[in-house]
Design a protein around this nucleic acid. Structure first.
Length: 425
RNA sequence: GGAGAGGUACCGAAGCGGUCAAACGGGGCAGACUGUAAAUCUGCUGGCUCUUGCCUUCGGAGGUUCGAAUCCUCCCCUCUCCA
């Protein structure tokens, strides 16, 4: 009987870890049962996480749910990483105000390729199952698709928040978008998933999976959703299209800098959501500041930024990123790496500043460069330049636009100019 | 199939014959402030060797007019109601 008690304790311990930080946990009792059976039989649960290869970059927001999948892996369960190559060609309507543009097969394939590498930063991909839903969706026959469609009703699909909102607002909803949750649910059937993870925006799709599994005679998966991470703008959820993201592949210094630019309010939220039980000291310090028990918000944010970099790049890179931040950003010194560019003069005065800015990629048009200069956003060798007609004289100069764009420019003397006879145009 | 309402710059949304490169809000960029924060304030936000100059833009194609985002015709797309 001691054996049984140990099993019970292990089940409860795992459930606690599984539930930690989760927003929604549906089917906990069923899962307890299945966990007990699985542990007794010495096998793991099948834990599904699906992602559409619609954007090539995974970001910090994705990492929240990936961390949860890693927890399952650490507990001895089988992570199933599902690349929705078929569904990406439909476009997930979740959280969408508009129909998502469908991707071509080539785009999808290209995006999918980079996924495994990115996921491997969080998960041991060798001990995970990697699947593509085209595997079963591609050969599916029309009759089978109709059968799948028969498992849900239009009213049920329209209950979805984003659909009902779009419907109420008189925005278009294409029929294929209604199919999306059905197909995602069918993926769970095909994979015989015990658990499916996702962000809270996936709640409907994941619950749909339960219904479809039932319709196909399978026990319904447990559904665990993680809170969504608000992007660096502090407003909307982190996403590629809003550009408010920190990509998992981002350079350490860039990652650190972006983390430092978030608001204090957001910092506490990020710590809570991203910690995944790994950052107790940060959680403690965060609580202290919020409750007015003292502490430095700046230091806490640095701790967060460092922890984030450490998670994806390791301790050494994190320390380097922090040193860089202290020196360059807070200390006002120049970055250690400034791109060097060589340009030809376009007149005896040197190189016209506006054209130079465009050439350097600091402005996308001459007009934009003009505005940048007129507003005092440009300096040459530390001196602000406000004259749009100014030219950068031959020789080496440090050109700066805004706060963070630097270039070391070497302007070559104009060919046939009066100066250096050795100069090559 | 019938009736009605719409499609405007990155997004939302005014404008409904000239004074429209197109109000306003959001976003973005720059400056001030600061803890490179956030919030706030100020300015800018189609292109052009560029400043009372030219070119391109208001779903698409034609047309009326000295002049069209604004009027007409046809077409494409969206929504609502009825069938």
């Amino acid at each position: 009987m001691g054996e049984d008690r140990r099993l019970e304790e292990e089940v409860e311990r795992q459930l606690r870890i599984i539930a930690e930080g989760a927003e929604v946990f549906v089917g906990e009792d069923d899962l307890r049962e299945r966990l007990r059976t699985a542990l007794a039989e010495g096998r793991g649960l099948r834990v599904k996480l699906g992602m559409d290869p619609s954007a090539p970059d995974l970001h910090l927001g994705h990492s929240v749910v990936l961390m949860k999948l890693r927890r399952f892996q650490e507990l001895g369960h089988m992570p199933i990483f599902l690349v929705g190559d078929f569904t990406a060609r439909i476009g997930d309507p979740s959280g969408r105000k508009k129909t998502r543009p469908a991707l071509s097969a080539e785009e999808v394939a290209r995006n999918a390729e980079t996924y495994v590498e990115q996921v491997s930063r969080v998960l041991d991909v060798r001990r995970a199952e990697l699947r593509f839903n085209s595997e079963w969706m591609e050969p599916m026959r029309a009759a089978d698709l109709v059968r799948l469609c028969a498992t849900a009703t239009v009213a049920r699909l329209l209950e979805r928040d984003d659909f009902s909102r779009r419907y109420a607002a008189g925005d278009p909803i294409a029929v294929h978008e209604l199919l999306y949750p059905l197909i995602q649910g069918y993926d769970s059937v095909a994979l015989r998933a015990d658990v499916e993870l996702g962000g809270t925006d996936q709640t409907f799709n994941l619950l749909m999976g339960r219904e479809i599994q039932r319709a196909y005679g399978q026990p319904p998966q447990a559904v665990i959703t993680q809170p969504l991470l608000v992007g660096t703008d502090g407003r909307e959820k982190m996403s590629k299209s809003l550009g408010n993201l920190i990509a998992l592949t981002e350079e350490p210094a860039e990652m650190y800098g972006k983390a430092m630019s978030i608001s204090d309010e957001l910092m506490h939220e990020w710590i809570r959501i991203l910690s995944a039980g790994e950052w107790p000291a940060l959680e403690e310090a965060s609580g202290a500041i919020r409750e007015g028990r003292g502490g430095s918000p700046l230091e806490l944010k640095q701790g967060l930024a460092r922890a984030i970099v450490r998670r994806f790049h390791g301790e050494e890179a994190a320390a380097a990123a922090e040193a860089h931040f202290r020196r360059v950003v807070r200390g006002g010194e120049l970055p250690e790496k400034i791109p060097e560019v060589e340009v030809a003069a376009d007149g005896p005065e040197g190189r016209g500043l506006l054209y130079l800015l465009r050439e350097l990629g600091f402005a996308s048009s001459t007009s934009e460069a003009r505005r940048l200069v007129a507003q005092g956003g440009v300096s040459v060798d530390g001196e602000p330049v406000r004259d749009p007609k100014a030219a950068v004289a031959p020789g080496e100069h440090l050109v700066r636009a805004g706060k963070r764009r630097f270039a070391r420019v070497r302007v070559l003397s104009p060919a046939g100019g009066s100066g250096d006879p050795d100069s090559r145009g």
